[in-house]
Amino acid sequence: MQAYERKQLLERVERDGATVGADIPETIEVQGEELDLRTFVFEIKRRETVPAGERDRVEQAKQNLRRERNERLELIEEGDISREEGEELAGSIIGIDRALNALESLGPTNLEREQKVQQAADTKRWMSFLKKALGQDDDAGTRRGR
Rank of each mutant, 00 (worst) to 15 (best):
P25M: 00
R15P: 01
L73K: 10
Q2W: 08
R69L: 04
R69W: 02
A99F: 00
Q60S: 05
G95H: 10
L111W: 15
R143G: 05
R83L: 14
K124S: 09
V117I: 13
A18P: 12
D16L: 04
L35W: 01
V13K: 02
D16I: 07
I96C: 08
E87F: 12
T142Y: 04
F40L: 08
E88H: 10
A90D: 03
D138Q: 14
L106W: 00
E14G: 11
F40D: 02
A133F: 13
F42E: 12
D16N: 02
A3G: 05
G141Q: 14
K124M: 09
R146P: 07
E71N: 07
E29T: 13
L103P: 01
R144A: 08
R83I: 14
P108I: 07
A52K: 13
V30Q: 01
R47I: 05
E34A: 10
E33G: 00
G141T: 09
V20H: 12
A3C: 05
R57L: 03
D56F: 12
G145T: 13
N101H: 05
E112T: 15
E43M: 13
G95Y: 02
L37C: 01
R15D: 05
D97S: 12
Q31W: 02
I24K: 00
R67H: 11
I76C: 02
T27H: 06
L106E: 02
P51F: 00
T19M: 03
E43D: 15
Q2L: 13
E112S: 10
M1E: 14
L73A: 04
L35I: 05
Y4W: 15
R69S: 04
A18S: 15
G95W: 06
Q60P: 00
L100T: 00
E84Q: 15
F42C: 06
L35A: 00
E59F: 04
K124H: 05
S128A: 13
A99L: 02
L75R: 15
R69C: 01
T109R: 11
A133E: 14
V13M: 06
E14P: 06
R146T: 13
G135D: 08
R12A: 04
S92C: 09
L103W: 00
Q119F: 09
R47C: 04
T142S: 08
E84G: 13
E34W: 10
D138H: 14
R146I: 11
D122Y: 06
I44K: 05
A61N: 05
A22L: 09
